[in-house]
Design a protein around this nucleic acid. Structure first.
Lengths: 176, 176
DNA sequence: GCGAAGATGATATATTATAACGTATCTGTT
DNA sequence: AACAGATACGTTATAATATATCATCTTCGC
């Protein structure tokens, strides 16, 4: 299934990781996807995407707005929200409901059904796509006669770097 | 065990159901729980709880505020938010993140880990507690070295009453 | 009744998000 | 190149949601 390579990816990158590469990878993928979809990744939209990717912590719309103004642009809330709306539609960013904030999509173009792990200490949000979770939720909804359309699954806690590296309590997994 | 009786409960009550009973049941359970916990369910808090329970649709804080004012009370946003904070702490109401709104807890005092099914047509939110979903999520987090603390699981779609009674269709879904 | 803790009142403001309308830019066609 | 329609962006105003702060009142244990 060629999944093992993907699992090796760092969910919560270490603070020392090469973040410039995260950004350039995301921007490259976005450009490719928009080109394929016939959508216009304008300079403004690209810049907003870049700002969303400025870290692995979800970013608020007004934080993005400030940064745009620091760029010297004239920008107002709709400037940011419209760009974000576009990026959400293209699947390039996700909205984190519990934070009213936005984070770059780690696997754009996958048509994925994702969950988020959100560390309350470092603030980072990791995108996870666990088939078993998606299936359990799908079954749960179906059994109750509910025609499922959208899923918001946001899990808070402490990431691997923020809780002393102790392994979880209760399940058998080796990981890493 | 002894779950089957509970499963018979209507997730999404019919429009014709006896809602007064939902409310009085909720208020009674709340009074009992607060008494046991040594917490004060003041008239204001009780009234806010009653307003949250005014339907099975999540209610916004400002809608509650208006109703309080219609009661003749002097009320301001903090009035409502403080009461809601109390009710959330006691597990008597839930916050629906995707709606910025609040809904009564169907099973208070259970220490439950719940999911919500939210109908985009009728607006009702049903509280679900599916062990398999909770377990799948717990395993997913644990395998990734994430110390799970909080779960927000909000599923949108059409409830049994709003999609013609058809049973689910394989649950194909959109990207995020 | 007294003092401390808790709850509410009241004012102000912060934060997040959208409506509405005008202008500019891009795209495809002639 | 000129045009027309569609799309994107600028701008102003305002809506919707949430919290900070301090004063007052109530309740509870003593």
């Amino acid at each position: 299934m060629a999944r093992s390579a993907k699992r090796a990816r760092n969910l919560f990158p270490r603070s020392g990781h090469d973040h410039a590469q995260c950004v350039s990878h995301a921007l490259g993928a976005a450009a490719a996807l928009c080109a394929r979809a016939g959508q216009r990744l304008t300079p403004l939209r690209q810049r907003v995407l870049e700002l969303v990717w400025s870290s692995h912590q979800p970013v608020g719309a007004y934080a993005i707005l400030e940064r745009l103004r620091e760029d010297g642009r004239s920008a107002a809330p709709p400037t940011v929200y419209r760009a974000l709306e576009f990026l959400l539609e293209q699947g390039l960013v996700h909205r984190i409901e519990t934070l009213n904030a936005f984070v770059g999509c780690a696997q754009p173009g996958n048509g994925h059904l994702v969950q988020f792990l959100i560390c309350r200490k470092c603030g980072a949000a990791a995108e996870v796509e666990d088939r078993r979770v998606v299936e359990a939720i799908g079954r749960s909804a179906a059994e109750r006669g509910f025609a499922l359309e959208g899923r918001v699954i946001e899990l808070s806690g402490l990431c691997e770097h923020c809780h002393g590296g102790r392994r979880h309590e209760g399940s058998r997994a080796h990981a890493g």
